[in-house]
Write a protein that binds this DNA or RNA. Structure first.
Length: 423
DNA sequence: AACTCACTTGGTAGGAATCT
DNA sequence: AGATTCCTACCAAGTGAGTT
């Protein structure tokens, strides 16, 4: 360091020296670190009081890292990227060492957005859900990481909290390399949290005597509707004075087992060969109003038997098309002819506010045993195909997941009736 | 014709829960 | 760990019949 100089004005041996060059700061690194080669680093900072303070702490950190054997010879750990330099040098050069939690998080999200996560995850999970967790925890208990963790465990879902804190820890490790923060106070915490979760899982497994089920398996709702219930639900939509326009969608969900987002994204160009082949390529997210790949990134083919229910349904829909020339026309539309807003369909199903619940009414009439969520259309399809004798592998190919997922998440063992689907 | 009232429909948003 | 669906709250606006 520049504070420990020899009588000749040189820096002490093994210390990082600070040099003023044209009113800018340059670091002189000990030759012994680089096999006798001279190594200098310009920080891109002007010689101001707070920048010098920052440079001194950076030099100190380098020395400590060298002594502990953690010195980064590429210097990436200590120097922000060129792009970050441009962003920072002008406005907040002295504060780069300790960025606020939310600012670090936002920069991490931006970085992750360009490195492999889908736009839906970026917007819904990272920019909103996890960001709100961090903001709320910080506002509630301040910057004590233990207190933040405890507050989150108390007030939010545990699995999501662990995921969020894991990401926050990654963000800090990344932030250290970028020069935004100097340490990661979340790392040990996350390790402990994951360990405690594993212990809970382990105990549960021992009690139950199971060896393969994971913690959430017990909570999975894999219930399916019976065939009578399916008929009752379809009939109810068909004869509804207010919501009959959802009938084709309901039938399609029950008869193909596809995901809701896939049905909402389906266009006529995806249905080919005389309405005998549907290819599921896209998924529509009505929350952020975007169409992207399917959840598992795979295109899949669903073949339809000619003359069956499903074939007749598509034939009827095709004959009623408003824009027969437009191959981009949506197969399923909402009341106003626009893309189905899943929430609106959901409101008719479950009921909310002024909406009456179609399912609840059927329960009152004794035609349906219990309320099941719309995704139970998928569970129902899968359960009946399995009961009908189709292999899990084949069913998985039809609905776009794996045989493993079929057994783990979907198949409802209590429904043993033989199905009568004729698609 | 203007108003009000009850009921319905649709939109945004936040966060939990579930699927892969 | 990532991607999507489920569910609720709150609020704006439309509708249609009855009232002033």
């Amino acid at each position: 360091m520049n504070s420990a100089k020899t009588p000749t004005g040189k820096g002490s041996k093994g210390a990082v020296g600070l040099e003023k060059l044209n009113d800018r700061i340059r670091l002189n690194l000990p030759r012994q670190w680089f096999n006798g080669q001279q190594k200098r680093v310009s920080l891109g900072l002007s010689w101001t009081k707070e920048n010098v303070t920052f440079a001194e702490s950076l030099a100190k950190q380098m020395e400590l890292d060298w002594l502990s054997g953690h010195f980064d010879l590429t210097l990436a750990k200590y120097l922000p990227s060129k792009k970050q330099q441009l962003n920072n040098v002008v406005d907040l050069p002295g504060k780069r060492a300790e960025m606020s939690l939310l600012e670090l998080w936002d920069r991490w999200c931006e970085y992750r957005k360009n490195s492999g996560i889908k736009i839906t995850t970026y917007k819904i999970t990272y920019c909103v859900q996890y960001r709100n967790y961090i903001k709320d925890a910080e506002e509630a208990v301040g910057d004590d990481v233990i207190a933040q963790c405890n507050w989150l465990i108390e007030n939010r879902g545990k699995t999501a909290v662990i995921n969020a804190l894991t990401q926050l820890s990654y963000a800090h490790n990344w932030g250290i390399k970028q020069g935004f923060v100097s340490s990661n106070p979340y790392e040990d915490l996350v390790t402990e949290l994951k360990k405690s979760k594993a212990i809970i899982k382990g105990n549960k497994r021992d009690e139950d005597g199971h060896t393969t089920d994971d913690e959430t398996d017990e909570e999975n709702d894999r219930r399916a509707f019976s065939l009578d219930e399916v008929e009752a639900i379809i009939n109810a939509y068909e004869t509804s004075k207010t919501h009959s326009y959802y009938t084709p969608l309901v039938k399609f969900l029950f008869w193909t087992g596809c995901r809701s987002g896939e049905a909402c994204a389906l266009r006529w160009k995806h249905i080919k060969q005389g309405l005998s082949v549907v290819s599921f390529k896209d998924s529509y997210n009505s929350k952020i109003k975007t169409t992207g790949d399917t959840k598992t990134y795979t295109n899949r083919i669903f073949r339809i038997a000619e003359g069956g229910k499903l074939h007749k349904l598509l034939k009827q829909l095709e004959s009623e098309r408003l824009e027969p020339e437009n191959s981009n026309e949506l197969v399923f539309k909402g009341k106003t002819g626009k893309q189905v807003a899943w929430l609106n369909f959901f409101r008719t199903w479950k009921g909310a506010g002024g909406y009456k619940s179609m399912i609840s009414e059927l329960i009152e009439q004794g035609k349906v045993k219990q309320y099941l969520k719309p995704y139970a259309t998928r569970h129902t399809f899968i359960t009946y195909q399995i009961n009908k004798g189709m292999s899990a592998h084949t069913v998985a190919a039809l609905v776009g997941n794996s045989a493993d997922v079929i057994w783990k998440h979907y198949f409802d063992e209590r429904e043993k009736e033989i199905p009568a689907y004729d698609f």
